[in-house]
Computed example of a mutant assay.
Amino acid sequence: MNQDFYCDEVLNGKTPVNTVFETDSVLAYHHTQPFYDHHIVVIPKIHISSLISDEAENTGQLLLEMMEVIKKIAEEMVNKTGASKIITNLGAYQDTKHLHWHVVSGNKIR
Rank of each mutant, 00 (worst) to 15 (best):
S53H: 12
V17T: 07
I109M: 10
Q94S: 15
I40K: 00
V20N: 00
V10L: 05
Q94M: 14
F21H: 10
I109C: 12
T81M: 02
A28V: 08
D24E: 14
Q94T: 13
H100K: 01
K85F: 05
I52M: 13
V103R: 11
G82C: 12
S84N: 04
I73A: 05
K71G: 09
E76H: 08
I109G: 06
P44E: 01
G91A: 08
C7L: 00
E22S: 15
D24F: 10
T32Q: 13
H31M: 10
V17R: 05
I46K: 13
G13K: 11
I48D: 00
T15V: 02
S25L: 06
E65N: 07
Q33A: 04
L51T: 10
Y36E: 05
Q3R: 11
G91V: 00
S49N: 12
V26A: 11
D24G: 09
D37K: 10
L63F: 04
M66H: 04
N79Q: 15
S50P: 09
I87S: 02
M67H: 02
T32P: 04
D95S: 15
K80N: 07
T19I: 14
H39F: 06
V78A: 12
I87G: 05
Q61D: 11
S84Y: 08
D24V: 02
S49F: 01
E75M: 15
M77Q: 05
E68W: 13
K97M: 05
T19P: 10
V103S: 01
P34N: 04
D8Y: 03
L62V: 09
Q33R: 03
E57S: 14
H47K: 03
H102S: 08
D8V: 01
L99D: 01
V103K: 07
V104F: 09
T96Y: 10
T88K: 13
K71C: 08
G106Y: 12
S49P: 04
R110A: 14
Y93L: 06
Q61C: 04
N58Y: 00
T23N: 04
A56Y: 03
K45N: 04
F5W: 12
Q94C: 13
K97Y: 10
T59K: 03
Y6F: 12
T15G: 01
V78L: 04
K85A: 13
